[in-house]
C-alpha cells in the first residue's frame, strides 16, 4: 500500500496502538505530547524575546540554554528536543531553515507556517538567502553577515532578534506584542510600525 493514499486516521490509530503495545510510549504520553504542540500559545516565544530584551540575566540564560529559559517561562519542554537560541546583532543575522525536513521550534512557536515546509523555502534559504529574505520584505545591509542555520539534527533553533530602536521606555508586554513568529526564525525583523 502507498502510504500517501492510506487512511491517515486509521494509520495513526494503528501506530499509536503498536507503540503502546510494544511499551515504547503510552497513549497518555502521546496525547500529552500532541497537546503540548497543539496548544503552544502563539505569544510565548515573543514573551521570551521581550524578557531577554529587558533582563540581562535572562538573556544570558536564553542564549546558553534555551530549554531552561523556556521552562523558566512555564513552557513545557519535557520530551522536546533541546532548544538553541542564536542572537542577531548589528554584525550577524540568523535565518533558520530545515533543508532535510521541517524541524521547527514547535515547543515554543507551535506549528510552522505552510511556507516553512515548502521545497522552495528550504532550497532557497541556503542557495539564495538574501533573495528569499527580500521576498519577505527583509533587506539586510551588505555589511551584516547572514548566517543561515540549517536545523539538521537534534536541536531546534530560534532567533533572538534585535530590539528595535525607539523602544527604550516600552513595557515588556508592549515589546512582546511586536514580536512575530517570523522574527524568531529570521525571515523578518521586529518593527515598531
Amino acid at each position: 500500500m502507498n502510504v500517501l493514499e492510506a487512511d491517515g486516521a486509521a494509520l495513526l490509530k494503528a501506530i499509536t496502538k503498536l507503540l503502546s503495545a510494544k511499551g515504547v510510549l503510552t497513549e497518555a504520553e502521546i496525547a500529552q505530547q500532541r497537546s503540548a504542540v497543539d496548544n503552544a500559545p502563539p505569544g510565548q516565544g515573543a514573551r521570551m524575546v521581550a524578557r531577554a530584551w529587558t533582563d540581562a540575566d535572562y538573556r544570558a540564560q536564553l542564549l546558553s540554554d534555551g530549554s531552561s529559559a523556556a521552562e523558566a517561562m512555564n513552557i513545557p519542554m519535557r520530551g522536546m528536543p533541546p532548544l538553541g537560541v542564536l542572537e542577531n546583532t548589528d554584525e550577524v543575522h540568523h535565518l533558520v531553515v530545515c533543508t532535510l525536513c521541517s524541524c521547527y521550534p514547535k515547543a515554543i512557536l507551535g506549528y510552522p507556517p505552510y511556507w516553512y515546509k515548502s521545497a522552495a523555502y528550504r532550497a532557497r534559504a541556503v542557495r539564495d538567502p538574501r533573495g528569499l529574505l527580500a521576498e519577505f520584505g527583509t533587506i539586510l545591509p551588505p555589511q551584516v553577515k547572514l548566517r543561515v542555520v540549517d536545523s539538521t539534527a537534534d536541536y531546534r533553533w530560534m532567533v533572538l532578534p534585535r530590539r528595535p530602536d525607539g523602544t527604550q521606555d516600552w513595557s515588556i508586554e508592549r515589546l512582546a506584542a511586536i514580536v512575530r513568529p517570523g522574527d524568531m526564525v529570521g525571515v523578518t525583523i521586529p518593527t515598531t510600525e
Binding site: L86, H94, V126, R127, P129, R130, P142, K145, L146, R147, V148, V149, D150, S151, T152, A153, D154, Y155
Partner: peptide
C-alpha cells in the same frame, strides 16, 4: 556555491 559574492555562511549540525 559557484556564484559566491558574499561573506555569508551556513551553520549546520553535524
Amino acid at each position: 556555491w559557484p556564484d559566491p559574492a558574499s561573506n555569508d555562511e551556513v551553520l549546520v549540525e553535524l
